[in-house]
């Protein structure tokens, strides 16, 4: 029962992340939704799997996957944002502030 709730919440957040990926205006904002919603959604699914199996091998592996996913998602987001900026991709029209521009030059 608990596992069903966790997995449902996870799937829901993954869906929100994907909607954000389509709706938001530029690459930077899209990465926001792609990293946050999708990482927590997937972590929630993994916690659900751990509850379902208990502390046997499948459950423990699911829990171990959480820090791996966490670190790879954050590092990938950082690398993509930085790479996109250095490749000269402009920020969307709604942007209000850009302190990084002066630092790069």
């Amino acid at each position: 029962m608990v596992s069903t709730i966790f997995i449902s919440v996870g799937v829901l957040f993954n869906l929100f992340g994907c909607i954000g990926l389509i709706r938001l205006p530029d690459v930077y904002n899209r990465l926001q939704s792609a990293t946050k919603c999708v990482t927590l959604g997937t972590c929630s699914i993994l916690v659900g799997v751990a509850f379902h199996f208990g502390l046997i091998d499948a459950g423990v592996k699911a829990l171990i996957a959480i820090p791996l996913l966490f670190f790879s998602a954050t590092v990938a987001a950082h690398a993509l944002v930085r790479g996109a900026y250095h490749a000269g991709i402009k920020m969307g029209d709604k942007s209000v502030k850009d302190d990084y521009k002066d630092a790069v030059k």
């Binding site: 929100f16 954000g20 939704s33 927590l40 209000v96 502030k97 850009d98 302190d99 521009k101």
Partner: peptide, 26 residues
């Protein structure tokens, strides 16, 4: 904080007017 972050982003994504004001800060 992580859970709050998710509700925050989900709200911005699902809101019809998309209340975003992005920028890079130091």
């Amino acid at each position: 904080e992580c859970i709050k972050a998710n509700f925050d982003v989900a709200y911005r994504v699902l809101h019809p007017a998309m209340p975003i004001k992005p920028g890079i800060v130091k």
